[in-house]
Design a protein around this nucleic acid. Structure first.
Length: 794
DNA sequence: ATCTTACCGATTTTT
DNA sequence: TCGGTAAGAT
């Protein structure tokens, strides 16, 4: 039988229906973002508006339907009637909506006749976590094509380009990456060489200076310092020398990764062209956080084809202090006048009340892109404000509320406490430990920043890159092998005089008249290094690491120390070994410098588990991108949040306000905002007024509590005793008026006006009718009604 | 070479 | 207040 005639219209109609079905779950704005593959797109994605969904589906749409869906006047060759039937069949199937993976391969191939090559897609994020999440969501939709696209962070993408191309800039392609600590080491070295006092020219401040200029794409010789500004003049000299030292060490810092890539593109148009040709479809996540260098990188890459989609939210720009330039997103349309601007304003995360509060707070900022989040979610609970007496009372309140939430079905991992500064976490931790609330501090020190990990990494870095003197100096006497400071100074002096690396000095030890002990130590060290170096390329990273730990005696030393601390170090090293194993398993051939750079670009946040069974304590900054059912914002006081340092920074308060917006929009169901009347910070009492952000919250959305009892325990001057008792009485009356003000539970310590300290041994009844049995040492057990008893929690 | 003592400084930090 | 670092003692 002859083949049935198939008309393009039939095919096209079916293909279109398939497209509709695949993207049926998206709202109109998301869908517009998804299908606008051609030309520049600015997608303003409010908090919780499903921007990852939009980006992920955009990738799928590009692969299946190409950049411009409108062109539909021809049909791929060889479409048969039975293909149309198969398409019909898929359309008739239930549960296949949004699931491209259920499409038969044949149909997939037919409909994607205009689809783009996955190799031409570049999706850039800021964090590994975001990149991973995107990959995880794209992979099931597109299959192995995921491995051909670049879905990665700015730094990872630049790293990959530089490993390939950096030779033309005069670096060796086995360069190492210096983290913040290494950086400071180099700066200290530079200060010493320039004979500058590191008290006056603080290394941290120098690194800020350097980083600031690097993010502006300014090399030392492009910087003009105003006359007479000695400090900046010196800082510039430090920057100059610092950069020379990095080159000597064949090392790049984080900023270099981006900056050098841009310089590479600027200096070598043919290389730029290669990448422009490859990456015809570019997407950037969190565009509001880009600094000038990152902006330039994207601008250059996108220049040729202009298929660039940036996604972000100017209201969530909170990294100005890291040179993120909010203007990049605000002025996107200046660079791309033809840009489509799409706003994702429907929020899928929070209750109406939470969103209303967030909108209200952010609306006070000027110069924002106009937008207003809304949601179909329920109205939700009132926001809870609590005025605590001090930071302990604040912690107590949080702990108590969490316990209450558990009763109504919440779990620990549904709760997060967000702080403005890390120092605030201490009081919370103490209380959580006391009350057995499992918590995790997120963000603190990075795994890879721990001493023992840095040590083993220094060995590996030095092996990978013999020019790396920072790593060499770190480990030359670790574990101790009799190489003291004096010896090290001799090595450094010799290397500077003869213009060789310190690694090279090791080969000429006879030239430096050294003591017998130091000499032996260095010879031993050299032998060890040679032995390790022989393993390069042959052994796996795991084998190499194990050998180093064993042969240097590093592990043995920790084990024999047998302290609590050394034990945890050994555990960390084991953890490190599992990471090397993971790496060894996925790569065909061990590549040390590859492994090391991967490690350098990983942070702790990446390992944050959302279903851990712990309450998360973290800074508001680290919370960005996360969501929790119940969020506690603590330290809502002037000076803490907004932080006093922001008061005299330009745009400082606006950034704090955005941070507040970010913090509020982390909450899905319940939001608690807590301020303390008094706070001990750095050993000093502070009395800060409640945060202006609290005043900006609409009153009708809030339930305001003030539980002052504990306040008077912190006032210890005896002469205030009378006032204290009067206030206690006052507070008891208040607490009766506010339901749920004080709840006692088993084991609570209390203080009774007459009987002193006691412990609650039984609780009967609820709220105001609560009856307690309290054991007072020396007085026996008393039964008391909460309503009347002169009680205070202790 | 390693332990002890005094001093400083203390937002936020995706990489 | 506290923790890290840098200089001094043994």
């Amino acid at each position: 039988m002859a083949e049935l005639e198939v008309s393009p219209e039939q095919f096209w109609t079916l293909r279109d229906r398939i497209r509709q079905k695949l993207f049926a779950g998206l709202n109109p704005q998301q869908f517009k973002t998804v299908e606008s593959g051609l030309g520049p797109v600015l997608c303003l994605a409010g908090a919780g508006s499903g921007k990852t969904t939009a980006m992920v589906n955009r990738v799928l749409h590009l692969l299946l339907f190409g950049p411009a869906y409108e062109e539909k006047d021809y049909m791929p060759l060889g479409v048969k009637a039975e293909d149309l039937t198969a398409m019909e069949f898929w359309l008739g199937q239930e549960g296949s909506a949004g699931k491209s993976s259920t499409l038969p391969e044949r149909i997939r191939n037919l409909i994607s006749y205009q689809g783009v090559d996955p190799r031409s897609i570049l999706a850039i994020t800021f964090t590994n976590k975001a990149a991973q999440e995107m990959k995880d969501r794209i992979a099931p939709m597109v299959g192995p094509a995921i491995n051909k696209m670049w879905v990665m962070t700015f730094h990872a993408a630049c790293l990959r380009i530089l490993r390939q191309e950096i030779a033309v800039l005069g670096y060796d392609n086995n360069f190492v990456i210096y983290d913040t600590q290494d950086q400071l080491q180099v700066i200290k070295d530079a200060l010493k060489q320039l004979d500058l006092d590191d008290k006056k020219y603080k290394p941290k401040s120098m690194s800020m200076f350097i980083s600031k200029y690097k993010s502006e794409l300014k090399a030392p010789d492009q910087i003009v310092i105003s006359k007479g500004n000695v400090y900046e003049e010196k800082a510039l000299r430090v920057y100059t020398l610092y950069q020379e030292l990095l080159i000597k060490n064949n090392a790049l810092d984080f900023d270099d990764l981006i900056m050098l890539t841009v310089i590479l593109f600027q200096k070598h148009p043919e290389i730029l062209d290669k990448y422009q040709e490859r990456f015809r479809y570019i997407m950037v996540d969190e565009y509001q956080d880009t600094n000038h260098t990152q902006y330039m990188l994207i601008k250059l890459l996108a220049e040729k084809y202009r298929n660039i989609c940036v996604v972000g939210d100017d209201d969530q720009s909170i990294y100005g202090f890291r040179q993120a330039d909010i203007r990049n997103i605000l002025e996107f349309e200046k660079d791309y006048p033809e840009a489509k601007v799409i706003k994702l304003e429907e929020n899928y995360r929070s209750t109406q009340k939470i969103l209303e509060a967030a909108n209200k707070v952010i609306s006070k900022n000027k110069g924002r892109k106009d937008k207003r989040l809304w949601t179909q979610n329920p109205e939700g609970h009132q926001l809870v404000q609590y005025l605590a007496s001090d930071e302990k009372d604040e912690a107590r309140f949080v702990a108590e509320q969490i316990s209450k939430l558990l009763v109504v079905g919440a779990e620990f991992q549904d709760c997060a406490v967000l702080v403005r500064t890390n120092a605030q976490s201490r009081a919370l931790e103490e209380w959580f430990i006391r009350t057995n609330i499992p918590y995790k501090l997120i963000g603190g020190t990075n795994f890879y920043e721990r001493k023992e990990i840095k040590d083993i990494l220094a060995y590996l870095k030095f092996l990978s890159n013999p020019s790396d003197s920072v790593s060499l100096l770190r480990i030359i006497n670790v574990p101790r092998r009799g190489i003291g400071d004096a010896t090290v100074q001799k090595l450094i002096a010799y290397s500077q005089q003869n213009n060789v690396t310190i690694g090279q000095v090791l080969d000429n030890l006879d030239d430096l008249n050294l003591g017998a002990r130091a000499f032996k130590g260095l010879v031993d060290f050299r032998q060890l290094i040679e032995k390790f170096r022989e393993m390069l390329g042959k052994a796996t990273i795991t084998e190499l690491t194990e050998t180093i730990l064993k042969e240097t005696g590093y592990l043995q030393e920790l084990i024999s120390e047998a302290s609590y601390e050394s034990q945890s170090r050994v555990e960390n090293l084991h953890e490190f070994l599992t990471k090397t194993q993971e790496y060894d398993e996925i790569v065909p051939e061990p590549n040390l410098s590859e492994f090391l750079s991967q490690v350098s670009l990983v942070s702790d946040l990446d390992t944050f588990e959302e279903n851990s069974g712990y309450v998360a304590i973290m800074t508001m900054h680290s919370a960005k991108g996360l969501e929790f059912k119940n969020v506690f914002l603590v330290g809502m006081e002037e000076g803490i949040f907004p932080h006093f340092r922001s008061f005299d920074e330009i745009g400082g308060l606006e950034e704090e306000r955005r941070l507040c917006y970010v913090a509020i929009t982390r909450a899905q169901e319940r939001l608690y905002l807590i301020a303390a009347k008094q706070r001990n910070l750095y050993g000093q009492h502070n009395y800060n007024p409640p945060s202006r952000f609290l005043r900006d919250l609409p009153e009708e959305l809030c339930e305001i509590h003030q539980n002052g009892e504990d306040f008077f325990q912190t006032v210890k001057e005896p002469r205030k005793l009378e006032a204290r008792q009067a206030s206690q009485n006052l507070n008891r009356i208040k607490s009766k008026l506010s339901p749920g003000g004080v709840a006692y539970s088993l084991g609570d310590k209390v203080i009774h006006d007459k009987w002193g300290e006691g412990v609650v041994v039984a609780v009967r009844g609820e709220a105001e009718e609560q009856e307690l049995s309290i054991a007072f040492p020396g007085e026996g057990i008393k039964n008391l009604l909460t309503k009347y008893a002169p009680l205070v929690k202790g």
